[in-house]
Structure formats: C-alpha cells, structure tokens
C-alpha cells in the first residue's frame, strides 16, 4: 500500500515536471510506464525528439509526403490550416491556447488519428510522449 502511494506520488511529480495540466498527468504517467515496458533503459520523454517527430516528413495514409506541420504549421503559437479542407486549426501551443492538452480523451483521439495520417501507423508510447512534451514546451 505504502509502495503504491509512493509510486503514484512519484508519477505525479515526474509528470508535473513537464508542466502538464493536472487532468492529463495520469495519461503521461501511463505512457511512461508503457515506454519503460518497451525499453527498460527509458528515462523520460524528450521535447527535442518530439520536435523531430512533429516536423519530419513521411509517406502518410494518403500516400503523399506529409508531416504534422503540413496542417499545424511550423509555429505552434499560430493558427494552422487543414491541408485537405482548408479549415483553420487553432494553435496547438498551450501557452496561447489554454484548452490544449487538457482533455485526455481528446489528446488520445488526435494522437491516434494523426499518427495514422502522417506515419500510416499508430505512434508508440515513446513517440506520443515525446510529441506531447514538444507541444507542451510551446
């Protein structure tokens, strides 16, 4: 029991280190434990790796070369634009858009969809965590 409480506390502190909103800290903790399971030498997510994941181009679901920036743009504090529909996408950066990274269900939905669209596969826990650190840093 004590051990469990301590572990939860530790998770909370670690997640909090990234400056995430309280409502998604437990999701970050889950991703961390998954990343650790996949690779025992895992220590923490990394915004720099996240940036690479976010800005690099890949052959996406439609067979075209695409990156996350194709729709979200290179400056996450600015509006993006859906490359297919032209619909404006509000900034991803939590510093200018308070609603970002506050709802775990939303975050999971978009990570699932957008990794499929850009990478044509689901993201790993490591990749998702890295990307979330990158977005949170903006």
């Amino acid at each position: 029991m004590k051990k469990y409480t301590l572990a939860m506390l530790l998770c909370g502190v670690l997640a909090n280190a990234g400056g995430f909103s309280p409502s998604i800290q437990s999701y970050i903790a889950t991703l961390k434990s998954e990343a650790k399971q996949a690779n025992s030498s895992f220590v923490d997510f990394n915004a720099k790796r996240g940036e690479q994941i976010f800005t690099s181009k890949h052959i996406g679901k439609k067979g075209d070369s695409i990156s996350c920036t194709s729709c979200h743009g290179n400056n996450l504090t600015k509006n993006g634009q859906n490359a297919t529909t032209n619909k404006i996408i509000k900034p991803l950066a939590p510093s200018v858009n308070k609603s970002r990274l506050t709802d775990t269900k939303e975050v999971q939905k978009w990570l699932r969809r957008n990794f499929k669209d850009v990478y044509n596969r689901e993201g790993t826990a490591l990749e998702k965590g890295d990307v979330l650190y990158y977005i949170q840093s903006k």
């Binding site: 679901k61 439609k62 297919t84 269900k105 939905k109 699932r112 969809r113 957008n114 499929k116 669209d117």
Partner: peptide
C-alpha cells in the same frame, strides 16, 4: 471513419 476520404477520423 478510419478511412474518411483518405484521413483517419475514427472515434470511440
């Protein structure tokens, strides 16, 4: 919805 005009628009 997983293949919604070429995009993944899946929902729970």
């Amino acid at each position: 919805l997983e293949n919604h005009f070429g995009s993944d628009a899946s929902l729970d």
